[in-house]
Design a binder for these strands. Structure first.
Lengths: 124, 124
DNA sequence: CGGGATCCAGTGGGATACTG
DNA sequence: CAGTATCCCACTGGATCCCG
């Protein structure tokens, strides 16, 4: 089966938070990456995404389901079990994530340098 | 020189407003597209971007300048003249815009259909 | 376990008016 | 012409608590 998610797969100090583009809502890309290797349960997602409250994660997942990016499977067991998996449409976002990563590795330094230079010229 | 901008190059009813990703702020991509063929003046941009207030356009341009995406040239004339042009870094965003357009032409129908189906199932 | 309910703060962006 | 100055509102996302 799919291995456990790395609890530290998302670094809070990652400079790509200044990346000039965004896919979905604030946490959408991280959800996509978490689901890349197969279905995951709600609380399984909450490990690497521990900086997200359950409310916001539930909202994110619901809007992704709404847009056909993920499927939601609720099993009528006790304790309850719910699994999320990427749809083919959701998997197409992985290409965009790759494009974003490529852009960052090629251009992020320039952007950060420009920002620093601008701030130096105009400390306002 | 560069031809005038088409006043209707941006359609308010374009379904790509539901596109699941965004580059820069709300108007950044449109500014990039306006500058694709060469430098433009402030009020020249305001023709196709007439749904943007001057305050917001000025903010957008300033943050793009801050990030090194555009250059700003202010000529000390009367009446004043200011021109904006894409930097090489700003031009790299055109590739992302193309990637976004490709994704939309290939997947936007699926997303819109999924959204409609979801709303039909769950009218809440 | 997988959420929902409620409340709240910050912010992005719009309306209007004014200016060097 | 190319912006600023004010004011304001809606919406995103976070905190906390509670539930089947």
């Amino acid at each position: 089966m799919t291995a456990s998610l790395n609890p530290d797969m998302f670094d809070a100090a990652c400079p790509t938070t200044a990346m000039p583009f965004q896919i979905g809502d604030k946490w959408t890309v991280m959800v996509v990456l978490c689901l890349e290797d197969g279905p995951r349960r709600f609380n399984e997602l909450r490990v690497p995404l521990r900086r997200v409250t359950s409310k916001v994660l539930a909202e994110t997942l619901r809007s992704m389901e709404r847009d056909g990016l993920i499927n939601r499977f609720a099993y009528d067991e006790n304790p309850p079990r719910v699994e999320y998996e990427l749809t083919p449409l959701g998997r197409t976002l992985l290409d965009l994530v790759d494009a974003a990563r490529s852009w960052c590795s090629e251009n992020m330094d320039d952007l950060v340098a420009a920002r620093a230079a601008f701030t130096a010229r105009d400390p306002a």
